[in-house]
């Protein structure tokens, strides 16, 4: 008996959009330091990020929806990071890869920003210095789950967040 496909199907558009978005994340590799090499290793043949639909690294922020901040961000680089983040179209997510991007790591010095989440929104933190490729892949899987759970077609989940959710910058404390 042949499979009969109904002429009309009813489904909510949100899960459909989430399913599409979650499985075709196009990363913007904002690779500055050591983590960038592990990001390359994640893309190379052994770990093969393509298995999770996130292998299409686009170096133009206009084509990306996932920013991976891999490596420390310093004073001179932060305005560049913010500009690239604002250039990315909605919906967009951010993974802070490694200890330096998440918190400054071992570089508690005059030049290094102590966590990019002080200045741009971050969805997922990956610990490690640098994280193993498996950890980055896990972060992408977790992010996919998050998108599937919370995403809406219009992206209203972003509009509701008017406040910066990360730890406050020191000068505001």
């Amino acid at each position: 008996m042949a499979l009969t496909i109904p002429d009309v199907m009813l489904a909510r558009l949100d899960p459909l959009a989430n399913w599409v978005r979650a499985n075709s994340l196009w990363p913007m590799p904002f690779a500055t330091a050591c983590c960038g090499i592990e990001l390359m290793a994640t893309g190379a043949s052994k770990h093969d990020i393509a298995r999770f639909g996130a292998e299409v690294m686009r170096f133009s922020p206009r084509q990306c929806d996932l920013m991976i901040v891999a490596g420390r961000v310093v004073m001179k680089m932060l305005p560049v990071l913010q500009r690239i983040w604002t250039q990315m179209p909605e919906p967009k997510w951010c993974i802070s890869m490694g200890a330096c991007a998440s918190s400054g790591g071992v570089f508690d010095t005059y030049a290094v920003v102590q966590g990019v989440d002080r200045f741009i929104p971050v969805d997922m933190y990956v610990p490690g210095c640098p994280p193993r490729p498996e950890q980055l892949i896990q972060a992408i899987i977790d992010l996919q789950a998050k998108i599937k759970q919370t995403g809406t077609l219009q992206g209203t989940e972003f509009g509701k967040r008017t406040e910066h959710k990360g730890p406050l910058p020191m000068h505001l404390n």
Binding site: T32, A33, G71, R72, V74, K76, M77, V80, V106, F107, T109, Y110, A111, V112
Partner: peptide, 9 residues
């Protein structure tokens, strides 16, 4: 763009 103060550390 990646000056992190190695020598100061």
């Amino acid at each position: 763009f990646l000056h992190s103060g190695f020598e100061k550390l």
